[in-house]
């Protein structure tokens, strides 16, 4: 197993945040995805949605600040922002299912070549948590999955077919990992960006399906 440099959680979140344009409505799932709300330039108006019932919240508060009556999906206090609105849970999922989300960003256990997502249960555990992920996978216009490229043991997480219980079929559009950015297309998975020092061949070795190398393949874009 290679012990090469891999980008950290904050940097993955920074890369994810680059996708969002002015006016986009974006749901962030628990874990690394929630970090993305901190990486929007001040002049860009992205409307963040948290499944627990808020639209248009601001940055994650620094430790010890903020209110426990204004939380993101991961339970972190977030800053209020002009234009923010509060929703009860049924309304919050009208936003999710009703097609109002331009993006959702979710964590993943496995993503298949066709864009199937598995992220709610490790089969051996016999019980897992669906939370909002299934509605998000079925409802959002575009799904970004952010996750380590491989399991702790070096196994594949980007696979030909998911072997874990499915959260959503053919729903994933973009995968951001600690070594690569991969787009899911009807022709297959396209390797668009690699982390510094990584070659496409090295990324392919750690990826089960065959990757199509983008003609403009480049180092991961952070600026």
């Amino acid at each position: 197993m290679t012990e090469k440099f891999r980008i950290d959680d904050q940097t993955m979140a920074l890369r994810v945040a680059k996708e969002f344009k002015d006016g986009d409505v974006v749901n962030l799932g628990i874990g690394v995805p929630t970090l993305a709300s901190n990486f929007i330039p001040g002049d860009r108006e992205v409307i963040f949605h948290a499944e627990n019932g808020v639209l248009g919240y601001g940055n994650i508060c620094t430790a010890g600040e903020g209110s426990y009556d204004l939380l993101n999906a991961g339970g972190q206090p977030v800053e209020p922002r002009p234009g923010m609105s509060i929703l009860d849970h049924a309304e919050s999922f009208c936003v999710i299912r009703g097609g109002w989300l331009d993006w959702t960003v979710l964590g993943g256990l496995q993503v298949s070549e066709k864009g199937d997502l598995a992220n709610w249960m490790v089969p051996e555990k016999k019980i897992g948590t669906i939370g909002g992920a299934m509605d998000l996978a079925f409802g959002a216009k575009k799904v970004i999955v952010v996750m380590p490229h491989n399991t702790k043991n070096g196994g594949y997480k980007i696979v030909k077919e998911c072997t874990y219980p499915i959260t959503g079929f053919r729903c994933v559009d973009l995968v951001v990992t600690d070594i690569a950015v991969i787009e899911v297309t009807p022709e297959g998975m396209v390797l668009k960006e690699v982390a510094p020092t990584w070659t496409p061949e090295e990324v392919q070795q750690l990826t089960e399906p065959r990757l199509i190398i983008a003609p403009d393949l480049h180092e991961i874009e952070l600026a």
Binding site: H89, R97, M121, M134, F138, P165
Partner: peptide
């Protein structure tokens, strides 16, 4: 699924017998 739970409960309050949701179609569990 969380949205299904919210809407099943809302339906209970609203006097509906149930809801139709795309979430979970084809997911065996």
């Amino acid at each position: 699924a969380q949205g299904t739970l919210a809407e099943r409960v809302r339906a209970g309050r609203a006097g509906l017998g149930g809801i139709l949701t795309p979430t979970g179609v084809g997911i065996p569990e």
